[in-house]
Amino acid sequence: MAEIVSLAQAVADAVHDGDTVAMEGFTHLIPFAAGHEVIRQRRRDLTLIRMTPDVIYDQLIGAGCARKLVFSWGGNPGVGSLHRFRDAIEHGWPRPLEIEEHSHAGMANRYVAGASGLPFAVLRGYAGTGLAEVTDTIKPITCPFTGETLMAVQALNPDVAIIHAQQADRHGNVQLWGLAGVQKEAVLASRRAIVTVEEIVDELQPRPTAVVLPGWAVSYVARVPNGAHPSYTSGYTERDNEYYQAWDPIARDRETFSGWLADHIYGETAVHR
């Protein structure tokens, strides 16, 4: 049964130096507050997994939390480059960043394989691309029934998945809705899972198309209202588009970024949750 704890305690208990960590949320329900808590607790040598690293991983990479990044699209959506991600790959700042690069279809299937207890997934993909040459978790495979050549991608089984959702009940059963991305697969592929939620309710009211994660499939639930900001939570908060735009000049420069970290993550005025 999931323990209902503070975010600080969930991160302290579930995320360790050297862990493989997947924070998912495909443009919606991105677990920003949890990412900030990981930075605040100064975790190091993490292998960070995420389809769209986005601003949240730009912050973790710039803060020096990551040794390796596993991803499929590293941009600031609708704005441009992720400057901390680029600085780490292009110049090794604040430390060199190893990468393992896939396509969205490949990443989604890797989570499905991980959640299914299989060593790999099969897809029609990557044929003829440079990715098949540079990424060693992509290998051709022959179909035993048709003889056709397809592509295998290795399963993802992170140490810990972190996601944000609308609601949990007092037993830690979680319900999320709207664009559901790949969160169910990420949680079920991982050894441990932290879910931050907008609210804890006495009883979950079933909703059409909602994803429900039973409390016994989740390790920790923490109540963090607006925990996806600047991303959004359908039914609760709006996407803060200005934040994404304002991030560009902050992240462009190492000094302004370090100032942002000091003020917004480590500082006394930072929002602790």
Binding site: H104, A105, L179
Partner: peptide
């Protein structure tokens, strides 16, 4: 829409599905 995850896309869609489904059941 400002991004592929803009809320207006989900609110006005005929169906909202997961990312593995989009690629595996619809595109592939």
């Amino acid at each position: 829409p400002l991004s592929i995850g803009d809320g207006i896309l989900a609110e006005t869609a005929d169906a909202v599905i997961t990312v593995p489904e989009i690629f595996n059941y619809w595109l592939q």
